[in-house]
Nucleic acid binder design. Sequence first.
DNA 1: TATCTGACTTGAAACGATTCAAATATCCGG
DNA 2: CCGGATATTTGAATCGTTTCAAGTCAGATA
Lengths: 360, 360
Amino acid sequence: MSGKVKMVTMRDVAQASGFSPATVSIVLNNAPLARYIAPATKKRIEDAARKLGYRPNAMARFLRSRRSQTVGVMIFDITDPFCTPVLRGIENALYQSSYVPIFADAHNQRSRFERYLEMLLEHHVEALIVVANWLFVDIQLLADLSKRNITAATIGWEVPGDSVSSVMVDNEAGGRLALEHLYHLGHRKIAVIRGPKMLIDSGPRWKGVQKFAHSVGLELDPSLVAQLPDELEANSGFEGGYRFTEELLERKKRFTAVLAFDDLTALGAIRALTKAGIKVPEQCSVVGFDDVPLSALAAPSLTTVRQPLEAMGNLAVNTVVEGIKAGLEKRDWSISRHKMTPELVIRDSTKAVPTAVTTD
Amino acid sequence: MSGKVKMVTMRDVAQASGFSPATVSIVLNNAPLARYIAPATKKRIEDAARKLGYRPNAMARFLRSRRSQTVGVMIFDITDPFCTPVLRGIENALYQSSYVPIFADAHNQRSRFERYLEMLLEHHVEALIVVANWLFVDIQLLADLSKRNITAATIGWEVPGDSVSSVMVDNEAGGRLALEHLYHLGHRKIAVIRGPKMLIDSGPRWKGVQKFAHSVGLELDPSLVAQLPDELEANSGFEGGYRFTEELLERKKRFTAVLAFDDLTALGAIRALTKAGIKVPEQCSVVGFDDVPLSALAAPSLTTVRQPLEAMGNLAVNTVVEGIKAGLEKRDWSISRHKMTPELVIRDSTKAVPTAVTTD
DNA sequence: TATCTGACTTGAAACGATTCAAATATCCGG
DNA sequence: CCGGATATTTGAATCGTTTCAAGTCAGATA
C-alpha cells in the first residue's frame, strides 16, 4: 500500500552524475549558461536524470524562478454549451505552450468567482483567462491583476480600461448575417428575439439586424420583437425562446421566420413551433447564433451564425502568453481587443419562400 | 503598466504585527501549536495580515508541507457531452474541499494522456481523477501513482488491481431498464444498437438487455442487432446510430423501437428515421442511455436511462479526498468500487402501442 | 533567593530548485 | 615557467513557508 518512493531530487542526479546541482540545473533547463557546458557533461547528466527518473519539482522551481507554469481558466458556467468549445480551444493552446490550466467554474455566482480568483492568486497563476458573461468581471479584477501584473484576457466580454485583453465576435456583423440570410430567402415577416439587456452581445447584434433591415428598406414589426429577460440559468435561453414563440402564436401573429438571439433560444422557438404543429423549416424558418455543438445534432439541424469558439479560446491564450513573455523580458506590451468575424452556417432550419404561417 | 506590487510575505506580516514569522505561520494556519498562542496575539496578527492583504504563497507552502492543494482532473475528451456534467460534479466537490483542479483533456489520444500525466506529477497533484474511456488507463498509471502514493479514481471505467478506486453506473441494470420500458409499452420487434467492443459499458448493458428479454421470453432478432465500431471520434455515436438505422430501413426490416447504446446513438437513429419519413415516437420509439444534457433539448426529447453524472463526479472526489486524508494520517485505507444505480427518464421519444413500421 | 512551572514565542533548519559571482583547470604565446 | 585568456564548473545565497526544539519571562514554590 505505501511503497512510498522517495522523490528523486536534483541533488540525487548531481550525485549520480558526479557534478554539482548547479550544473545539473543548468543542463536540464538548457539555461543560457549551458553554452559553456561540455557536451560530455551534458550527456552524463541527462543520462543520470533519465536513469533515475528525475522529475523537477514544479513548486520548488517556482519558488525560485517565480514561474508556476500555470494559467487560471475561469468559466462563467461550464454547463452552458457555449463554453465547451472555448474551453477546448484554451486547453489546447495552453498545452502547446506547456502551461497547465487551473480550472475554475463560477457557476454564474459572483461570490464563487471571487473566491476562485483568490485561490488562483494564491496558486500564482501566471495569467488568467476568463470566459465571461456579464456581471462578474469588474474593477476589482482589474486592480488586483494588473497590479500584480498578471496578464488577463476575457472571451465573450470586454472590460473597460486598458488592462485586460479581450476576444469577441463581431456581433454586429453576425446580426447582419442572420437577417441577410432570412431576407434573401424571401422572408419579410420576421420575429426577432433579442438577447438579455445585461449581455454585451445583445446590443450590437440587434444593431446589425436593424442596420441591415434599414439598408434594404425592411420594416421590423415591433410587435414581433421580444427581449429575453436577464436570467442566470444556463438553459434559460431555451425557455425564453419557447415562451416568446408560444406567446406570439397565441396572439395569432403572422411571421415566416424567427431570428433568435442564440442557438438555445432558437431551439426553444423550434420546440414551440413544432408543438403548435408548425413545421420547421417548411412553414417557418429559424436562425440561431453561436453554433454551439448541439446545433448540428438538433432536429432539424440549426442554421446559425457561427462564432469560431475554439479559435477564440486559442487566441486568448496566445494573447496572454505574449503578455507573459513581454513581462519576463520587461518589454513593453499593450493589451489587444480582437473581434473575430462570424460565419453563416446554413443547415436545415431555414428554407426559402415559405408558405405563410396562419395560426387561425 | 508595471505598477509591480511587491508581494506581501509572511515576514511582512510578522514585522507589522511585531511577532516572528513562526508565530504568524502558526496563527494563520491555526496549527496545533495555536492552542498556546495568546488571543491578543492572534488578533494582532490576523489584523495585520488582513490590513496588508497577505496571501500565502501556495508554492512555498507546498515546498515545506508537501501539500499542493491541487488535484489533477483528466478527461478523455471534453467535447463528449458525457463529460460536462461529470466535470461539473468534480469541480463542485473539489471546491467544497478547497482543492483546485488542474484540468487535462486527453483528446482521446494516448500520447497526450501520458504527457499530461507527466505534467500533473510535476505539479505534484495530491490526487488524480480520470474520466475515462477505454485504452488509456493502464499499468503505467497504476505503478506510477500508487508508488508515489497519489490516490486516484476513475469515472466510467475500471482498472484491474487494487490501487485505483472507480465510480460507474450499474450498466446491467440500465440495459434492463431500457428494454423493460420498451417491452411494457408493448414493443416486441426491437432493434438494438450495441456499444463498441472496446467500451467497458457495452458488455454489461447488452447483458442486462438479454437477461430481461430472456426473463419475459422475448426473442431478440439477431438481424436487428448491430454493434457500433470502435471509434475515437467524440460524435461517432451519432454517425453510427444514423448509419445502422438507415441500413436497417434499407433492408426493409420491421421494428417498432430502437434501443440505442447511448444518447448520441439514439439521436442518430432518430435522425435517420425522421429522414425516412418515420415519425418518432408515433411510428417508432427510441431509447437512449446516459441522459446527456442535450437529450432533454432534442426534438423529440429523448427517453433515456440516466446516469447520475454529476453525483458520480462528486463521489469520485469524495473518494480521493478520503484517500488523501488517510495518507496524511497514515491510516490504512483501501480503494472502493462504486456502482451507481441508473434511472429511467421518460420523455417524448417513446410511446406505447405503435402502429407497425412498414418500410415498403 | 534560587528553582521550577507553565504559558507563550521564536531561531534556525529544512523543502528543491535557480542563479551569479567566483573558483578551477587548461592551454597559449612569449 | 609565467601571466593571462579561455573553457568549465560550482558554492552559497535565495525564494516564502512550516516545524520543532529551545528560548524567555513572569509568577509560584520551597
